[in-house]
Nucleic acid binder design. Structure first.
Lengths: 190, 190
DNA sequence: GGTTGAGGTAATCGGATGATTACTAGGGAG
DNA sequence: CTCCCTAGTAATCATCCGATTACCTCAACC
């Protein structure tokens, strides 16, 4: 297989593993097995585990930005309110990609690692700028959108879907993501 | 020193280290040094690193719940709207405790570790119930409050305060936490 | 048919880390 | 004094993991 294709495979596999176990908790060996290659090859392709994680973060952010951009570009004359709904739906669709939002979340919580913190900050700001500039959100709209997104990520991270028997958990999940509640439940059950 | 006092010391130190480095990324040795005791003693006091992390999570959640309760009890006749402001302020004050919210956040993202995920889910639900039942929030109010909290945590986690020279970052931070913007900036600079 | 370079792997190393074991200081009770 | 319990530590172990090294395979090309 061409090295570039293999690289894509490894990034995808790594996104799943990092999303599940976090940056420090993931081993290059687990990623290699998930991608069907040997552990030394993973390390040699990216140099270090940190560089691999940064590649995963970048991939996740690019995907998020391009999905949001697509919504904006396919509704060129839409108001911020209409775009809010469309971009929100695009965000919900990203949930299907198990590791994507969780890998991002793991990056967001690791500001103490210099390279990871820097990448996370710049990525987060890029999303904010897209909402403010290109989608025309007000600062408050952008804030509320991001806040809602972080809550969704958190609920997925703690696997709140496992508690759907509890009426409070069900109410919370359904209030946060009425359309995606069922997906959240399934994601939590692996 | 009495063992119980030493235990408090270790939990406090561990909250700082876990908040900074995460669960897996923190070593019992670093925690021991931060607490001024030997590494084996930390392990023996709590049995395992996981048990120590669970103790830290519990401490953080109890603190959060008791601070929120205090607001409710000191305004027995207040409306949900008034309590919203008071509890929000209480949340902001928790930021001063460096590791507290970040340790919680690290717990929230580690649902894949069974014991940690279970503790995080139950803790999160307890907070939700307090908002809904005792503070009288509507489901939407509780959702928005929690979402806002998760965004604050995220901004602290990625040390967005380091980017306060960037006008977009400044706008975001000041829009999210107008009163605490300066604290967030200082926290980011260690 | 040899050479070469790209795409890999097996074996291994060195350091980090959670946990265990064995030990000790010290102070209060009898 | 001596016993013994509480509060600790030093030394060490076993394991894991990221990284390195040395090697292999096989198609393309001359």
């Amino acid at each position: 297989m061409r090295a570039e294709d293999r690289r894509e495979l490894v990034i995808t596999a790594a996104m799943g593993v990092f999303g599940e176990r976090g940056y420090v908790g993931s081993t290059t060996d687990a990623i290699a097995r998930a991608a069907g290659v040997s552990q030394p090859y993973v390390v040699r392709m990216f140099g270090t585990k940190e560089a691999l994680f940064l590649a995963v973060l970048d991939r996740a952010l690019q995907r998020l930005l391009s999905d949001f951009s697509a919504v904006i570009e396919s509704n060129p004359t839409a108001s911020a309110e209409v775009l809010h709904a469309g971009i929100g739906a695009a965000y919900g669709n990203l949930l299907a990609d198990r590791g994507l939002l969780l890998s991002l979340m793991h990056g967001f919580v690791l500001g103490s690692v210099p390279a990871i913190g820097a990448a996370a900050r710049l990525g987060f700001l890029e999303v904010y700028r897209l909402l403010r500039r290109r989608a025309g959100f007000s600062a408050e709209q952008a804030r509320d959108f991001l806040a809602h997104g972080m809550l969704v990520n958190t609920l997925v991270g703690i696997r709140m879907g496992l508690e759907m028997d509890d009426p409070d958990a069900r109410e919370l999940v359904e209030c946060v993501a009425p359309i995606k509640a069922d997906l959240i439940r399934r994601l939590a059950h692996d």
